[in-house]
């Protein structure tokens, strides 16, 4: 029973982090309709930005958080502006854009390797406090903060998409860019906005990740796989679906390693992804999406 509750809590924490990854990714996918794999690269770059601001330059904690989030948005904006926009003008196919995004991911990871080295870095903001005991399971105060702040963010994000002008425009473009253009929404501006906002969500995810665990340059692709899997499970392009998928994935991984060595975590994500693509390619909440062009 103790183990069960502990795994449930671990799944919840993992799910909270994955949902932020998946949510940004899914937002970008919903308007751009290609797999932006470099989203993982943006996350890892943002966590190194946060590390630089906070642990090297010794800025104030909240200031470095805000700066890191803004810079993450900037990174996303620049990637869209200088890489994807030219490709989009050439009407590149989805496969080409996918491979290009691998190029971006490898580029970002290698830059981090050159600048910071391959060693893991830690950010000791909240000292390892004594964990609280909940129903026989241990949870640290930081983990509670992570869960609560990601839930607040996701609610905030939901209202952003439903109520604000930009959020509505984003949903219009994701439904049909041509019709959106007719009613006066500039699709290319909305692409830039989704990249910026999606990457800012990535920046928030990056901060929570770097507080919870050590960071290293190779984390990007592994996180991206989690985010992508969560998005597919929930239904690609549907942000609530992505959040749902993220928690499902978090639980599946943590209950999976009850039986398997913990090194199989990534593999569990992929087996889940594979099963969904095979049997339920539209995900649980996903709208009809044509994956068999």
């Amino acid at each position: 029973m103790d183990i069960f509750v502990q795994l449930l809590i671990n799944g919840l924490i993992a799910g909270a982090i994955y949902s932020l990854v998946a949510c940004g990714f899914s937002l970008i996918y919903s308007t751009n309709k290609f797999i932006h794999f470099a989203h993982g690269g943006v996350i890892i770059v943002s966590s190194y930005i946060f590390y630089t601001l906070f642990s090297i330059l010794h800025l104030e904690f909240y200031l470095s958080c805000i700066l890191a989030i803004l810079l993450a948005g900037l990174v996303g904006y620049l990637i869209n502006q200088f890489i994807y926009k030219p490709f989009r003008k050439r009407k590149a196919s989805n496969s080409i854009l996918l491979i290009a995004s691998f190029g971006v991911l490898i580029f970002l990871e290698s830059m981090l390797l050159i600048i910071f080295g391959a060693n893991v870095q830690t950010i000791d903001y909240i000292p390892n406090a004594q964990g609280l005991s909940v129903l026989g399971a241990i949870i640290t105060p930081l983990q509670i903060v992570i869960i609560i702040s990601s839930i607040i963010l996701l609610i905030f994000f939901y209202f952003f998409m439903k109520k604000t002008r930009i959020g509505k425009a984003m949903r219009a473009v994701s439904d049909n860019p041509d019709v959106a253009e007719i009613v006066g929404i500039s699709a290319s501006k909305i692409y830039a906005w989704t990249f910026t906002i999606g990457s800012m969500v990535a920046g928030i995810a990056a901060i929570l990740i770097s507080l919870e665990q050590n960071i290293e340059p190779s984390m990007g692709s592994s996180l991206m796989i989690k985010g992508f899997t969560a998005a597919v499970i929930g239904g690609l392009g549907s942000v609530p679906g992505a959040i749902f998928g993220a928690f499902l994935l978090g639980f599946a991984e943590n209950f999976g390693i009850w039986y398997l060595p913990s090194g199989y975590k990534d593999a569990i994500a992929f087996v889940l992804l594979f099963l969904f693509l095979l049997f339920r390619p539209n995900g649980i909440l996903g709208l009809k999406y044509n994956n068999q062009k």
């Binding site: 290609f34 090194g263 992929f270 992804l273 390619p281």
Partner: peptide, 25 residues
């Protein structure tokens, strides 16, 4: 067998992660 294009690419990428996980564990 049911997939194409970028979906196929990502699932095959998944095989390489699964293989890696098995080799290392």
């Amino acid at each position: 067998r049911k997939l194409k294009g970028d979906y196929l690419a990502l699932v095959t990428l998944g095989f390489s992660f699964v293989t890696y996980a098995v080799l290392i564990n």
